[in-house]
């Protein structure tokens, strides 16, 4: 990962340098080649990218997401215009932000600005090792906030958890193809998902307790009988153990109620993909 004090203001050097070993993403991909060439062409040609993405740094990303990102998506409309979301994802590939910056995007920033979390999740899926992708993204399967999505067909409604679920299960999201993720169970067998490496690692501990707590939560959920969704920017608790704990509770009760068996669980051996 790049660790210099500065970064280039535009993409020319990023695209020019063919990806030396030191500049490969943690998952081994060349960041300049993760997005398709035609898509990159549309991005660097777009007005939003040229006007608003020049000379952005990690903090500038926040400015742009807060002010300009109102939907997710790859390219949209008949002209296949790249979304600001995609343009900023491309900018992130150039910036290669450090893990602690990504943590702010996901956690503190992501609680307040949902599209910041969505962007960080997308970027993590593009660049991080599979085990880290699971570990960093899974907590947000509890994030029920609405997201707008623009495609060639038009605008549609989705949710953060569904977007994250797409990132974990699909190989093409927002005009970008990913290498298929290994199954979670395989990563657990390899021991890659048992260690608590991530600052969001509490999820592992909570997953171990899942079976014991499932029953109680299921009952609680049925007693409530609701599935309220928050439209606000804040969902779940503030960052810290308490918040994650609550989110995890939400995640499980919901994934059971709304789409049982939609996702593989680490504890379930050999559940094949649908």
């Amino acid at each position: 990962m790049k660790s210099g004090r500065t970064v280039y203001a535009n993409e020319s050097r990023f695209l020019d340098e063919r990806g030396t070993a030191s500049e490969l993403a943690p998952n081994g991909e060349n960041p300049a080649k993760i997005m398709e060439k035609a898509v990159i062409g549309r991005i660097v040609d777009s007005q939003f990218y040229q006007y608003q993405c020049f000379a952005l740094n990690e903090a500038g990303i926040v400015d742009r997401v807060v002010n300009d990102v109102h939907f997710i998506g790859g390219t949209y409309g008949a002209a296949q215009k790249p979304t600001p979301f995609l343009c900023l994802a491309f900018k992130l590939l150039q910036l290669a932000p450090a893990d602690d910056v990504l943590e702010v995007y996901l956690g503190h920033g992501g609680e307040r600005f949902k599209y910041l979390r969505a962007l960080a999740c997308f970027y993590i899926r593009m660049t991080r090792r599979p085990a880290d992708v699971y570990r960093l993204l899974e907590p947000y399967l509890a994030d029920r906030r609405k997201l707008r999505r623009k495609t060639r067909q038009g605008t549609s409604l989705t949710y953060m958890d569904e977007f994250v679920d797409d990132l974990l299960t699909k190989t093409r999201v927002c005009a970008t193809s990913f290498r298929e993720l290994p199954r979670r169970t395989d990563l657990v067998d390899l021991g890659e998902l048992e260690e608590r490496e991530s600052p969001l690692g509490d999820i592992d501990e909570l997953l171990e307790e899942e079976d014991e707590r499932d029953q109680a939560e299921e009952e609680a959920r049925q007693a409530n009988g609701d599935d309220e969704r928050s439209e606000g920017e804040i969902d779940g608790g503030r960052d810290g153990d308490g918040g994650e704990d609550r989110m995890d509770v939400d995640r499980r009760s919901r994934s059971r109620s709304r789409s049982p068996g939609r996702r593989e669980r680490g504890e379930t051996p050999d559940r094949s993909k649908s």
């Binding site: 210099g4 004090r5 500065t6 970064v7 280039y8 203001a9 535009n10 000379a55 952005l56 740094n57 990690e58 903090a59 500038g60 990303i61 926040v62 400015d63 807060v66 910036l95 450090a98 602690d100 910056v101 943590e103 702010v104 995007y105 503190h108 920033g109 307040r112 600005f113 910041l116 920017e233």
Partner: peptide, 24 residues
């Protein structure tokens, strides 16, 4: 000007988030 931009630290990013959140 250089063709280079100074990177922002996690703390600066967090401060920026706070700034916009306050604005909102």
């Amino acid at each position: 000007q250089k063709m280079e931009v100074e990177r922002a630290s996690a703390g600066e990013v967090r401060a920026r988030v706070e700034y916009w959140w306050e604005q909102r």
